[in-house]
Design a protein around this nucleic acid. Structure first.
Lengths: 377, 377
DNA sequence: TTGTCTTTGTTCATTTTCTGAACTTAGCTG
DNA sequence: CAGCTAAGTTCAGAAAATGAACAAAGACAA
């Protein structure tokens, strides 16, 4: 186990990137002497390594960075069938891959993971003995300890202590997390939000997920529900939603909703891109649908900015398409609905992610816990 | 200056209320031995004191609490003319009061504060030598260090380093903060949100302000704009707002907006209460106005819940009135627009505050900084 | 009343962690 | 090449926290 100073150092480096001992000492409020010792220990543990040397006036400084092979994590996505398991290094690189059949039985899941784990590790010898955690991403609400699934409609669960079950079967520290929150964590640790303290990730797909980072930490909300923007009312008295309300963002702007609206209009579009193509050649229905969806998403994002003033909005998508009408309208609506003096202040970035998002997100949850540990006061 | 452990202890007590040494040691992750010493020091400094004795099995435990006279703070509100200055003890009790003419000139303000300070302190000898900070509440945006006013339309300021100027003139540590955020801090430190980690305070008045606490800390947002719900679009294509957009919450639900709507309808109502009375005797226009305002505020609060999942929404108001139609509709709209499975999970509390809110809020900013100090990593 | 039990809080020697100051290292500068 | 600058190390000493033993204060049962 690492000391709290060691953990803190890892955390700082993971947030601010490779830095010299002197810089790190200053940003942690420690003396150079203390830093020297802590760094020495972590290097000899194989968790840190010296990378670039920066030449300037005086003695050159040597940057310290996380050693990609300092720790390995397993990520499991329970959002797909078969469920992917990936082995990730400390940089978020996926270095091995397996799948297992998806089950709704927690014990069966734990069993399957325990069975698949050796196969996964066998692919990469260098991970031997350095597996530092398992993360599981699922659709649903997870408690603060990232141990129990409070509720998952998709899996039909209520108060399932999945993390504990897996930990018991595998002997490895395990944490579970909501899908959107897992993606946010992976963007913070491994992705394009490393150096941003406050940001929100919107994961755009058949559903719309969202998660917030506040002060460099994942903000889960009081019931683990922070970021559930899919069911905010965006069209008062709009179409009914499966949640029981009307006019939820989900009914207008999710990929599923867009496809359904297209189908209802008799359009033979099987993807957002198809619909964009239709719109670009002047199909009124396609334009109407994209406009409506874009406005809705843009308005929700504007609310997000107005309410939380994040430093970045990151929209991740697997099969989205933000270069056309949809994206343009979304951005315009977002700009038009924030305080004019704020407009343009908050970057809205879209990012296409590969099919490994969920599994990588899951792995990042394990990494996040390795870095944060049992959070101090 | 206090050590970081001492500060931490004060913070924990201020959050969780009076506790025994053993409990405190556990919740701070320290040994009883360490706690014993830290507590002894703080008691002899006059910052902590032993209060109740709890009898159970074994040796009785003695609760430690902040000593109300352990530190004193001055709060200045630049929201009123004349501007009130209050002297507050460590419990948020206002023990002295002065006023000074409001000015737009930072130097003049600092001068006035420096002049008024002795008079304020003269009222209460026990505060002698224990004045630990000055807080200033103002309408506008404040930077992260709570030192510079980035922008205040009301005061006509842009990048004014007010805190530094006052600090220089008075020799006392000074921090400035946005009005709504100051109120939130005072609710956290002194009010009804002491033990809630995540909550939002909506200050309802001629304008609508809001501020969030996340993880027990004030969340300021990336540009200090977190919580600016007044200008979120609540009625798409609604009435124009002075901010340049349309349909902002501020144009429908603020006290000012309600009064203006009443006036426009030819109603002779000078307060929300008058309007409620009108509505209660069946005045259609009054009912319409209250309904519209309540729905708007309720929807905004629903968004707040849906986006951030706070543990509490606290609505503070000086001359509001939430027992009538307005309040009822507001609550209904809030419930109706959150995920049904969440409805009712987030308490929405209204709280009438006295005219000292802003000044007390300002003082609490100083207290907050005394407790948090220069925040560690 | 009295001894036992339970739990809080203190004491103190010891260990861990951090600091300050002096020093070494390594490259720029002229 | 000497002189300068800044990074990183070393080491004695200070500061903070620990663990174990112990004193304190009441509950409880005989």
């Amino acid at each position: 186990m690492l000391t709290s100073s060691q953990q803190q150092l890892l955390r700082v480096i993971s947030q601010s990137g490779p830095s010299s001992r002197t810089v790190l000492a200053a940003s942690m409020g420690l003396s150079k002497a203390a830093m020297s010792g802590i760094a020495r220990d972590l290097i000899s543990l194989g968790v840190l390594r010296e990378t670039e040397t920066i030449y300037g006036q005086g003695r050159p400084s040597i940057l310290l960075d996380l050693h990609p092979e300092g720790a390995f994590f397993v990520g499991v996505s329970l959002l797909e069938d078969p469920a992917p398991l990936v082995l990730s290094d400390f940089n978020g690189n996926i270095i091995a891959r397996q799948t297992m059949p998806l089950s709704r039985d927690p014990d069966a899941i734990a069993e399957m993971i325990a069975d698949t784990l050796p196969k996964l590790l066998a692919e990469q010898e260098r991970a031997d003995g350095k597996l530092s955690g398992i993360g599981v991403a699922l659709s649903g609400f997870v408690d603060e300890k990232q141990a129990n699934c409070v509720k998952s409609t998709l899996l039909g669960w209520q108060d399932v202590p999945l993390a504990g079950i897996i930990r018991q079967k595998t002997g490895i520290d395990t944490f579970i997390e909501n899908d959107a929150k897992a993606v946010a964590v992976s963007e913070k640790l491994f992705g394009s939000a490393r150096d941003v303290q406050n940001f929100s990730v919107v994961s755009f797909g058949n559903g719309i997920g969202c998660a917030h980072f506040v002060g460099g930490k994942l903000y889960r909300g009081n019931h683990g529900g922070a970021g559930e923007i899919a069911h905010c009312t965006i069209e008062p008295n709009g179409s009914p939603c499966r949640c029981g309300k009307r006019g939820c963002l989900d009914t207008v702007a999710s990929l599923k909703a867009i496809k359904e609206m297209a189908k209802a209009e008799g359009l033979a579009c099987h993807s957002l891109k198809d619909l964009e193509t239709e719109a670009s050649i002047g199909n009124a229905a396609a334009i109407r649908i994209l406009h409506r969806a874009g406005s809705a998403l843009g308005l929700a994002i504007a609310h997000l900015i107005q309410f939380n003033d994040p430093g970045l909005i990151l929209i991740t998508h697997v099969e989205g398409h933000f270069d056309g009408l949809f994206g343009t309208v979304m951005r315009q609506a977002a700009e038009a609905n924030v305080l004019p003096r704020y407009a343009g202040q908050t970057p809205i970035r879209t990012r296409r992610v590969d099919g490994d998002v969920w599994a990588r997100g899951a792995a990042s949850i394990a990494a996040h816990n390795f870095l944060i540990g049992s959070t101090p006061y």
